[in-house]
Amino acid sequence: MSLRSTTDADMPHFEHLRAGLFVGLNPPKLHGAIVMSLQAKYHHRNPAMGRSFVVKPLMGTDQAEQFALRYGFKVQPQTLVVSVSDAFSDYIVLALSEQLESRQQRDEHYRQAIEYLQKAQALLRGQPHPAGGMVNKLEKMQLTLDKVIDNRSEVAEERAKRFVELNLVRRLRDVWQRYTNTPFYVGLDGSGRSPHDYLRQCFELALAQYPEIEWLGAVNDRAIDFMLKAIRS
C-alpha cells in the first residue's frame, strides 16, 4: 500500500470512506492516512512490509487443522491460516477505517444526507419521467440510512449487498476452490460442511479477533444465502 501524502485529489475518496460507501473503490489503494491511523490504533506491523497494516491471524494451527478436516481441504494448517487471513485483509482494513469516526459522528452525517434526500424527493415527486422515477430510488436510499442509524437487524442484509462484503465472500470462495474440488454451492444441507457453514465459521473467526467490526456479528443466515447467490450472477 502506498503511504504517500494526502492531497486535495484524495478528498472525494475520503468522503466515500467517511460515508461507508465503497462501491467502485479499489481496496488495495487505500490512502496512507487511513493505514497509518489504523496502525496507531491496532499496532499491527510487518517489518518485511515496512509500515503496512497487517491482519492478525484469524486462527491457530490447531484450529486450522480441524478446519481443513471439516471441509476436506488439502492444505497444510499454517498455509490455511495465511490464506484465510489474507482473504479478509482488504475487508478488515476498510471496516476498521469506518471505526475511525465515532458512531455519533457517522449518524450525524447520515441524518444530514437524509435531509437532502427528503428535499430531493419533494422536488422530484410528481415530475414526468425520468425525474419522477428517481423518487423511489431516493426513498430506498433514505430507508437504508434510517436502518443504519437505528442499527436494526436488517442492516446486516443491507450491507451484504455492498461491494466490500461481496468481495470478501469472493475471496473466501477462492480459498475454498484452491483447496477442495467440492463445488461452492448455495444452501444448507445439514452436513455442517457446506460453503454456507464455511462462510459462517470464517465470519465467527474474524469476529473473535475483531469484535469491533459490527457486521461480522450481525450477519445472519439469510444474508449469507444472499451473498452466495449474488456472487454466482
Rank of each mutant, 00 (worst) to 15 (best):
L38F: 13
A230N: 05
C202G: 03
L199A: 00
N151D: 14
R232A: 15
Y185D: 14
A206R: 04
R152Q: 14
K161L: 10
I231H: 06
Q209D: 11
F73M: 04
L123I: 13
L30S: 01
E157Y: 12
S194W: 02
K161Y: 06
Q99K: 11
P77T: 15
V75R: 05
D225P: 07
D86W: 02
A19P: 00
R103E: 14
F163E: 13
Q177E: 15
M227Y: 00
F14D: 00
R70P: 03
Q112V: 08
E108H: 06
R152C: 15
A156R: 01
E158H: 12
L21R: 08
V186G: 00
F184H: 02
P47D: 10
I149D: 08
E165M: 10
L3C: 04
T6F: 01
V35D: 06
A230I: 06
G72P: 03
I114S: 09
F22K: 05
K229F: 13
K161F: 02
E65P: 03
Y110S: 08
G217H: 01
Q127R: 11
G50E: 09
F163I: 06
E154C: 03
V23K: 11
K74Q: 13
R222L: 13
D150Y: 08
P128I: 03
A68P: 03
V23H: 12
H44I: 00
L117G: 04
A122N: 11
V55P: 00
R45K: 13
A223Y: 07
F67Y: 06
P130I: 08
Q66M: 11
Q63M: 13
E115Q: 11
Y91D: 00
F203C: 08
A120N: 10
T7M: 06
Q76W: 14
R45Y: 15
A156V: 01
A122F: 10
Q105L: 13
A156N: 00
M134Q: 10
D150V: 12
Y210K: 04
P27N: 04
V84P: 04
A95W: 03
D62I: 05
D146Y: 09
V175F: 07
K140W: 06
L172K: 02
E204H: 08
F88I: 13
R125H: 12
R103I: 11
L216Y: 09
G190K: 09
A68W: 01
L17H: 02
D107T: 00
L117C: 09
A87P: 09
H196F: 13
Y116Q: 10
L188Q: 07
R171Y: 07
E157I: 10
G217L: 04
Y198W: 09
L143R: 09
G192R: 01
E204L: 11
K229R: 15
V135L: 10
V148L: 05
S233T: 13
R232V: 11
S2C: 05
E204S: 12
A113W: 03
S194T: 15
V23S: 15
R193F: 02
R162D: 15
G60F: 10
V164F: 06
I34C: 04
P47S: 06
A122V: 08
D225W: 07
T182N: 07
Q127W: 05
K161V: 03
P27Y: 00
Y42F: 12
V186T: 14
V148C: 06
D10W: 05
R162Y: 14
L172I: 11
Y179E: 09
